[in-house]
Computed example of a mutant assay.
Amino acid sequence: MHGKLLVGVALGVTLGAGCTPSVDRQGGDAVPAGSSPGSVSPSASSAPTPASSGPGTPATAGATQGAPVSGTSGPATQVGEIRQTDWPNAVIRKLTFCSESDDAVAFRNGSNGFDVPCRILPGGAQPVYGEFIVEEPANAPSTEDALVLVELGNANAARRQALVPVQLSDNGRGRHAWPAIRGDQPGSGADQVMTFVSYRLVGQNVEATVRTLDGGTETRRWRKADGSGNWARY
């Protein structure tokens, strides 16, 4: 399967349904980790960053060369939990963007180590934190979720990026992914890749500046399409 990805990647995302009713979780503003509210530093990217929407400054991750190099996160509602994740070495279940067959993807030093690798937070990207995933089950211990950038493919071949929502498992220890927001299919050339230049949470929605296949930039927005965590662009 992985050999075919050198010329194009087309992976779907599936999600196992829970047995308890879903509960909408409220999103919130976020600032860079280690900073006080209102002290957001400009991104290192030369690409434009979406403007804030509503009070406060939603989380943002900036990038150059199509991979965010700095990120933001919000004030923790609970110490620990999802923010304690060692993302470069995380094990994430249901991350089918990286693999259609494996139940879990194990990262080591930011990569799953395959010939056609899946990399988490490439280019020094940072996770964005907030309460934005449909909670399942309703008594899950997590009060905060993460949005992380993942890239599938070799740097000199066809690549595809996705924004992946990640939530703690109901035991508070495991991490599992929800349906991803996938970038466009890559073009025929190695440099024809849609990349997420910046991304942030605006309430329960996701907003991103993307670099398109032709090198231009545009703002895209997604909101939840259903209680299973699928996303719809609007």
Rank of each mutant, 00 (worst) to 15 (best):
A157E: 07
L152Y: 06
T212N: 13
N205C: 11
V150A: 11
N205I: 07
N205A: 14
V164T: 08
G187S: 07
P165V: 05
T209F: 08
L152D: 05
A190S: 04
Q185R: 14
V197M: 13
R223M: 03
T212L: 15
K224C: 02
M194T: 00
G174N: 11
Y199Q: 13
R160V: 03
R182D: 11
A208E: 02
L168A: 12
S188G: 12
V210D: 02
G183S: 14
R159V: 00
P186S: 08
T209A: 06
A162W: 04
W222L: 00
D214N: 13
P165T: 03
R211H: 03
S198A: 15
H176L: 13
Q185I: 01
G172I: 04
L168P: 07
A225R: 03
E207Y: 04
R200S: 15
W178L: 15
A208Q: 05
R159P: 00
K224E: 10
G187Q: 08
V206I: 13
T195D: 14
V193W: 01
P186K: 02
W178A: 10
T219R: 10
Q185G: 06
D191T: 05
A180S: 07
D184P: 07
N205V: 06
Q204C: 09
R175M: 14
T217L: 01
S169L: 12
L201G: 04
A225E: 02
G153R: 02
A208L: 12
G183Y: 01
F196G: 11
I181M: 05
A157C: 08
L213M: 05
G203V: 07
R182K: 15
N156W: 04
G203F: 10
R173L: 15
G215E: 13
Q167E: 15
D184I: 00
H176I: 11
E207P: 04
V197S: 14
T217H: 13
M194A: 09
A155K: 04
A180E: 03
P186W: 01
R220W: 00
D170C: 14
Q167P: 11
A190P: 04
T219G: 01
Q167K: 13
N205G: 09
T195L: 10
G172V: 08
P179C: 09
D191F: 01
A180I: 08
S228I: 04
E151H: 07
D170R: 10
L168H: 09
A190T: 00
F196H: 10
G215A: 06
K224D: 05
L163M: 12
N171C: 08
P186Y: 01
W178C: 08
G187P: 02
D191Q: 02
